[in-house]
Design a binder for these strands. Structure first.
Lengths: 203, 203
DNA sequence: GTCTATATACAGATAGAC
DNA sequence: GTCTATCTGTATATAGAC
């Protein structure tokens, strides 16, 4: 019971801190605001997290765990290559244009000087994991006929880079709104078409 | 004479502020540090720039002017398409992986909530200008024979996205060092080869 | 364990001497 | 015009009541 209460306070703090950090960034959020949002007193907040930096590290770590789960949940079995690529593309595009993912990226880019290990954690849990997934798929189908991918690392990189496009950077800058479902699908179709024409079916 | 002295103080402040902002970000740099770096007193600093925000806006604006000049300096006349693409690619890659450009991006991404107009300014002076340059080139050659680009906007986007690759994001996160000249050239060759095979020479 | 109240430091911005 | 010294707010972190 006591443990449950403690845990719920801790969870409550983390939830509020996550929202605030992602919305406003690390510096703009004070420990007062986090305590107020939880809501707990500042003294209680410091009982659970010895410093603001520790709180940020915990927030990012938990977000990364979720990120990794999302990526690993993508499976592609027993379909055509085009459909598999489209499935991977849809998952990737949904993920990277999600407001929360953009906020995570902004946060770790902002703080990459002060907390380089957090940037690495996010990279490994997100883009790196996605690249590994795709590359292993490309290696698998590369042994089949009708497909010739001389450099699977480059190919995987190229696929995701095309999907990101300039729009992802604009979204990161807050210069443009995230694409609608229709826009995403149009873009995915263009990219997959271009990709398969350019890279695969080399025979 | 008086004007020159004023001007040199102003330049001195801007130079120091630019360095500090790019190295450490907006929040981490205090007006004290900027004054110290110039070196001028804080009162003098406030004579030239009424607030820290104004100073940031001026710093970014001046950086953007330089950025735009760099991009517009790229010319591509009377060569083969492959060479023209490589020339554009080299200029683009040198620009985006420069430590200063990465620092500008980090800075405006960090502050895009507080100063959305600065993010737009940087985007328009950098990526947007580059896209326009490339798209106008693609439109020009699209009228020639042996080249068929159905969607020049997508094509321009694709070219730069491929050149950025995942590495640019890693550099933004501080997770990896900028590529060497050799690495850049290898990447450019891969991208241009892939690009021309996939998109152009459709006949 | 949780709170209120506070210590300490430093931020942005300014007043007034020269 | 430029400086030193200071005002005012707010940040992180903590002490002590309950």
């Amino acid at each position: 019971m006591t443990l449950n209460v403690s845990c719920s306070k801790r969870q409550s703090i983390l939830k509020g801190a996550t929202t605030l950090f992602l919305e406003q960034g690390f510096n703009a959020v004070s420990m007062d605001k986090i305590a107020q949002a939880a809501p707990v007193s500042k003294a209680t907040l410091y009982k659970y997290f010895p410093s603001k930096s520790d709180l940020l590290a915990t927030v990012i770590s938990e977000l990364c765990a979720v990120l990794l789960q999302t990526i690993e949940a993508v499976s592609m079995e027993s379909e055509s290559m085009e459909n598999n690529l489209k499935k991977i593309a849809a998952g990737f595009v949904d993920l990277i244009f999600a407001e929360e993912a953009l906020a995570i990226y902004r946060l770790v880019i902002s703080e990459c000087h002060a907390f380089p290990e957090l940037a690495l954690l996010v990279y490994n849990s997100g883009p790196q994991a996605a690249l590994e997934l795709l590359e292993s798929y490309l290696e698998k189908i590369n042994q089949h006929k009708r497909v010739n991918i001389p450099d699977t690392a480059f190919a995987a990189d190229a696929f995701f880079s095309l999907l990101k496009g300039d729009l992802h950077f604009q979204c990161l800058l807050g210069a443009k709104a995230a694409p609608s479902v229709t826009q995403k699908n149009e873009h995915i179709n263009k990219v997959v078409g271009f990709y398969m024409q350019g890279f695969l079916y080399a025979d």
